[in-house]
Design a protein around this nucleic acid. Sequence first.
DNA 1: TTTTTTCTACCGGATTATTGGTAGTTTCTG
DNA 2: CAGAAACTACCAATAATCCGGTAGAAAAAA
Lengths: 212, 212
Amino acid sequence: MLQDKWIQLAVVDDHPIVLHGLERLFAQEPHISIAGFFTTGAAFIDFMADNEVQVVLLDIALPDINGAELCRKIKQLSPATCVLAFSSHSERAVIMQLLQNGASGYLLKNIAAPELMQCLEEALNGQITFSTEVKKIMARPSAGELEPVLPLTKREKQILHLIADGKTNAAIAAVLLLSVLTVETHRKNLMQKFGVKNAAALIKAATQHQLL
Amino acid sequence: MLQDKWIQLAVVDDHPIVLHGLERLFAQEPHISIAGFFTTGAAFIDFMADNEVQVVLLDIALPDINGAELCRKIKQLSPATCVLAFSSHSERAVIMQLLQNGASGYLLKNIAAPELMQCLEEALNGQITFSTEVKKIMARPSAGELEPVLPLTKREKQILHLIADGKTNAAIAAVLLLSVLTVETHRKNLMQKFGVKNAAALIKAATQHQLL
DNA sequence: TTTTTTCTACCGGATTATTGGTAGTTTCTG
DNA sequence: CAGAAACTACCAATAATCCGGTAGAAAAAA
């Protein structure tokens, strides 16, 4: 832990028992000063307007805002503030979303106290840190659930991107100097490969397969 | 580093100079055994069929396959193998994609040798690790580039998800017990809020705004 | 209680997409 | 060089979406 410096830590969680437990835990830490406990995102954003916080432990299920969205807001208001997600949600997509929004780590609520302190220290030292269970999730290949899709040809990928851009078949034909009927065929082939029936489902599936 | 144990490390990079430099660097490490250097994904996948590798340093721009895709394949073939992306690409989307596919870290190629060894050690100890520059990128709020979208109502979110599932207006009406005309109005309102002209662009935009 | 917001519904015409495949040419691969 | 794969084009019928707003009822908020 940074020596002889008080770390202003805030906790945003809508469960009072959690807040109580964390309060007791941190009370024993000589270098951590509890800036506050908050049960809503709005309350914490208000608090940040006049108070500096170095670290936030952030639940993601809050009554007034999604934690990922709150994370983004916190980082926009105070980029130096270190946000650690602190949640019982263990889905990979949720973890990735918090990272995407600038979180410096993700801890599951089943974390042991010593590990929690370890992760806090790492985060304060600039690390991006995860509790052990989260590391296991991250290390797993993620797309086992996705049905593999037939490989797309070069032209198909081009057409796919243009469809995702919202272009009509006629517009795509103009861009690629093709017949509209050719574009229709490519679109039909794409939908067949993904096993979908319209463009909306095609774009969603392509995104899931990381083709967009 | 794990004591008295040889770490089988492989490098997959299509630049011979990089391979040469890493070879010299690791030659000085008593516990690292170079399993091999590979310039294509296919060559490495072949190698893995008969050889165990604990750690892979993986470039993402390879001649025959995208590094993110290769990462996914490696983790599918050998979930215990630790993959560290090793790249000059510093875009956040690329970093997230590697993490999504199970990478245990992401290092930029401008990393200093001591830091590289440090990250290797952390990765081998089960950490998810990033070089300093990457941590800076990760800590930045990411969505400053996205134009904010008007908030969606509860009903709009429902409609959006059903559109993304590929359902027609008639199907959505049946599911939600609404008139088809009502669903059309919601769809129109959604497209207006996102500033798009069709369902494909709507789904892409909604994905970018993390609404799907 | 009043005002605002959300939800619901309208609806015909124009536009676009989807459907059902078939098939010739060009490019690529072995 | 031969075979396979990719790309191109066909095309009418049908289905679905998009467009232009307006407007009343219900729910929520002040």
